[in-house]
Amino acid sequence: MNFWRSVMAIVWKDIRAELRTKDIFSSMFVFALLAVIVFNFAFELRVPDMKMVAPGIIWVAVSFAGTLGLNRAFVIEQDKGSLAGLLLAPVDRSAIYFGKMLGNLLFMLVVEAILLPLVMIFFNLTLLTWQHLLVLGLGTFGFAAVGTIFSAIAVNTRAREVLLPILLFPVLVPVLVAGVKMTGALLDGETFSSLSNWLRLTLVYDVVFTGVAYLTFGYVVEE
């Protein structure tokens, strides 16, 4: 019980801080919006059907914007040594991980909730179906699960902004490929049951990497 109370306290703290500063949300949203606009103009005249490129555009915008958010997630914990303040509290290290991870997931989902309608308008597509939302949700969960632990690793390094994507993207390949394939298949009108292999891959990825992060986070944040 205390575990989840601590997790929710950390999520609440991140939301509260973000509502004041809007540091994470503004950089993520502006980047994602610009990416969609630029891709829209770049492909509009040369691609016969925007369905062919839309899945890639959506996942590139989401993953790059997510990386910007992750870069900030632990930087705010470094201000005034507040990460040490968290580590001094009598809470399981994994509660800190889940608190930060759920905060990152929430910020990404908010950006996606605003981005998807814009993509639908720009590319004239239907994306607000439960299948699309489930695919996006599972992929985003995997992204946040892995990204949070890599963000904690990178924050103490000199070139953290550069190091985070270099570390993160090779590990994200399975979930990004699965996300693009499933979004593309759904746009092509394939049935949801035909995506079972990709869906299983994403689910296993989410479970495995959340478990690995849960087990290793304590070693990452301790000296």
């Binding site: 205390n2 109370r5 601590s6 306290a9 950390i10 609440w12 703290k13 509260r16 801080a17 004041r20 500063t21 705010i76 201000d79 005034k80 040594g81 507040s82 040490a84 303040g85 968290l86 001094l88 509290a89 009598p90 809470v91």
Partner: peptide, 29 residues
């Protein structure tokens, strides 16, 4: 059992004084 004061204040800039204390109060149950 421990209370720690160091050179770094271990607080959050973008929270108020009472929000900071409430937050740590929750972590300490």
């Amino acid at each position: 059992y421990l209370g720690v004061v160091s050179h770094a204040p271990l607080l959050y800039d973008s929270l108020t004084a009472e929000e900071n204390l409430r937050f740590f109060g929750r972590l300490y149950s």
